[in-house]
Design a protein around this nucleic acid. Sequence first.
DNA 1: CGGATTTGACCCGCGC
DNA 2: GCGCGGGTCAAATCCG
Length: 186
Amino acid sequence: MDDDERTPFDANNSSFTTLLNSHQLESGYYEESESNNFEVSDLLEFVSNECSYEYQPIPTSQTTPMIILPEFSQNPDNLATGSSTNSGVGGNRETTTKKRFAFRTKSQVEILDDGFKWRKYGKKMVKNSPNPRNYYRCSVDGCKVKKRVERDKDDPTYIITTYEGTHTHPSPGEVTDLTNNPPTIA
DNA sequence: CGGATTTGACCCGCGC
DNA sequence: GCGCGGGTCAAATCCG
């Protein structure tokens, strides 16, 4: 709990400080899972896109967002093979470089309103945890962002939310001019 | 009535 | 080659 063995944030980086302040992140850890191109700006952009905490604070309860990527290279048992090409039944899925970020938040509810609409498409029980793992997907058509929510087996009070992919649309809460806002490259 | 949620079944990759 | 673990889909159900 108070003793972690992972690589902490680069506190020297002002960007991270801003990030921490903007999103009220107490502490956390980040790690890159695919390529080494992962930078602070990516994390910032991702946070801004994926978790609009700044727009929609967690209304359910006092939540302390934390950025943490524990299972990516530390425990292969949790995520097993993350960078697989084709996954699922379809067999033919377009798989490009997708970045994943895990946020560990302290909350009793798993449904954290981050400003986006999610549709649950699966629930699975993890073998090493009594708590199930929920799979969410962005309800927006065309957006292939996936979200994985799981309770910390060690600390049930903590929720580990893993985002995968990048949103190609603005937050539904904030209506913007779609005609004047062309989507970026997928 | 429409949409989201549920739960079981199916599939894939890897290990043994 | 089979089994395990994990991830996804899909039909049925429930809710608003």
